[in-house]
């Protein structure tokens, strides 16, 4: 197996295959991740999340172009939901990221969330690791901010950008969605539309009211991703957040937190995967019937799954 060798030599086919192996939970993928672990930790990692249709992919394309102009290589992982009904997925984020398709120093990978048994965050974080180990200077992870997934990806990146549009509703809703807590930078995209100013003011006020003992107050920026308006300000804000992290050993703190989260998430995944083997899926179906027949309570059924069948 010369995959590792080819990966180290910078063969993008090897990177692509490595991602597939990791995504499919293959042992080979695990081995490769272990082998390249020493090479990780160099990339600037950026997360970008927000509701569907907010223009995340176009913003990512803008980031790609900016970083490429600065001579840096870029890796992107774009995550879209898998249909819970069919198990399939339509991944279309690439369309918006193709202005540098001929550029070998840009690598874009689309990923589906797959299944409801978790594991997405772990896989996406693994892909971030691989892109980092492959030597990408900047790694960007794009996720749809409608579920739990974005919260897990947050742990694997240095800076999280939350993108909203003027139509996203008011700032209260943003807060309700829990996006307030994860954002290091807010972007109000499609700022040429009505309501962008109100959104910015509302968010700003909300951020100022927070009583958090932090010196980083997430900036609220306006962009029009399709025309590139506001991109330089976003790049500046990203640079500032990076400087902020570099001071007072914040980056070490971040790394500890990231690694801890990574380990915990792997443990959870392992437990989950292990747990549902051993015929428990079948047992579950049986218990569902018993609960429906009011012979057991749901809590009772859960306990029953832990005891040997």
């Amino acid at each position: 197996m010369d995959l590792i060798k080819r990966f180290r030599k910078g063969d993008r086919l090897a990177l692509a295959r490595a991602i597939t192996l990791v995504e499919n939970g293959m042992q080979e993928g695990r081995d490769l991740l272990d082998a390249v672990h020493p090479q990780t930790g160099k990339a600037r990692r950026i997360g970008i999340t927000g509701p569907p249709g907010a223009g995340k992919s176009t913003l990512v394309d803008g980031l790609i172009q900016s970083y490429r102009k600065a001579g840096q290589s870029v890796g992107v992982v774009a995550v879209d939901p898998t249909s819970p009904f069919t198990g399939g997925a339509l991944l279309g984020d690439r369309i918006r990221m193709q202005s540098r398709w001929a550029d070998r120093r840009v690598f874009v990978r689309s990923m589906a969330t797959r299944g409801s048994w978790g594991g997405l965050a772990a896989a996406a974080a693994d892909v971030i690791e691989l892109l980092d180990a492959f030597g990408k200077d900047v790694v960007i992870a794009e996720t749809v901010g409608v579920g739990q997934s974005e919260f897990d990806v947050v742990d694997a990146v240095h800076t999280t950008i939350v993108v909203i549009v003027p139509e996203s509703g008011d700032s209260i809703q943003v807060m309700k969605a829990g996006l307030m807590e994860i954002a290091d930078i807010f972007v109000v995209n499609k700022a040429d539309r009505e309501g962008a100013g109100d959104m910015e003011t509302g968010l700003g006020a909300m951020l100022d009211m927070r009583d958090r003992e932090e010196d980083w107050r997430p900036p609220v920026l306006q962009t029009v991703a399709t025309s590139g308006e506001g991109m330089p300000t976003l790049i500046d804000a990203l640079a500032q957040h990076r400087e902020y992290l570099a001071k007072e050993s914040r980056i070490e703190e971040w790394e500890r937190k990231a690694v801890r989260a990574r380990i915990v998430s792997l443990v959870h995944e392992e437990l989950r995967a292990g747990f549902w083997k051993q015929g428990r899926q079948a047992r579950l179906e049986q218990l569902v019937g018993e609960v429906l027949a009011r012979e057991r309570t749901p809590g009772d059924a859960a306990q029953a799954l832990f005891s040997p069948a």
Binding site: L13, R94, Q98, S110
Partner: peptide, 23 residues
């Protein structure tokens, strides 16, 4: 299946790069 859609008006080179990266 997981379907990656390229959008319209793609060059052969762009399609091949997408096929490679998406494995």
């Amino acid at each position: 299946m997981e379907v990656i859609y390229t959008g319209l008006h793609q060059t052969p080179e762009g399609i091949v790069e997408a096929a490679v990266q998406e494995d």
